[in-house]
């Protein structure tokens, strides 16, 4: 647990006159489940995009699996699996065909692909719907399928960008169980969410981002006891004076 899977040093990202990330530094250990928390627009997805090599940082440095995100993106991409915030699936393919397509794009051999596809569909509760076209899926089912696509090739480091957004409690718990199993397999997982209870349930450590700055870093218990509150939601209120999500 003392080997760093991800190192971020003073990362800054500016989009014209908007500063999305303002000097973030953190480390994620190998096999750790790290949560990036924050309200919408805090900079969570920008951080993930930089770590995946999709966006270049304005300044600062970051390493994933020991490789520099600006110079060695090709090597990083061999290690990671990304579940983007948007549901990236092909609606005209069935669930099973979507998984098969991504497995083939990862050049997986036929037998491994078949085994992993069956296993992941089963774990995500999609086996019964695997032969239906994805366009007929509910929002939660699409998100679960998207998660399978990100993990079909068994990556060492998984970036899950709000994987449970718009899911019903049942689907959310299925995903939580799945993420816990991934952790048992010693995968490094970076999870972004604005559900504080999700972070509290799953994460070894969390980093709270607000307006592009890392305002807190530690285990959920550390943060709760340090701020003398009952849960992470209250930690955020104590730090910013705002709720992370406005009540609908």
């Amino acid at each position: 647990m003392n080997e760093s899977a991800i190192t971020v040093e003073n990362l800054v990202k500016k989009f014209e006159d908007v500063t999305a990330l303002d000097g973030i530094s953190l480390q994620v250990e190998k096999g750790e489940l790290f949560g990036l928390l924050g309200p919408n627009g805090a900079g969570k997805t920008t951080t993930i995009n930089i770590l995946c090599g999709l966006t270049k940082p304005t300044s600062g440095a970051a390493k994933v699996g020991g490789y520099d995100v600006q110079k060695e993106t090709a090597k990083i991409k061999e290690l990671i699996g990304v579940c983007p915030q948007e549901t990236a699936i092909y609606p005209y393919l069935t669930g099973a065909e979507n998984v098969e397509l991504f497995g083939n794009l990862h050049a997986m051999d036929k037998d491994t692909l078949k085994t992993r596809r069956a296993m992941l569909l089963e774990k995500m509760g999609l086996t019964g719907d695997a032969k239906r076209r994805a366009e007929k899926y509910s929002g939660g089912m699409k998100r679960r399928l998207s998660l399978i696509l990100a993990l079909i090739h068994d990556p060492q480091i998984a970036f899950l960008d709000e994987p449970t957004v718009a899911m019903d409690p049942q689907s959310r718990h299925a995903v939580w169980d799945f993420i816990k199993e991934l952790k048992k397999e010693d995968k490094t997982i970076i999870l972004t969410t604005h559900y504080m209870e999700e972070a509290e349930e799953l994460c070894d450590r969390v980093g709270i981002i607000d307006h592009g700055k890392l305002i807190a870093l530690g285990t959920p218990q550390e943060l709760i006891s340090k701020n003398k509150v009952k849960n992470l939601e209250e930690v955020f209120i104590a730090l910013t004076g705002r709720k992370i999500r406005e009540e609908v």
Binding site: A74, E78, V82, A88, L105, A107
Partner: peptide, 17 residues
Amino acid sequence: ENGMINAYASHRRHRQS
């Protein structure tokens, strides 16, 4: 629009294909 390009781009092999 639906994020598929990002999904491809986050893996080098996809982009080559």
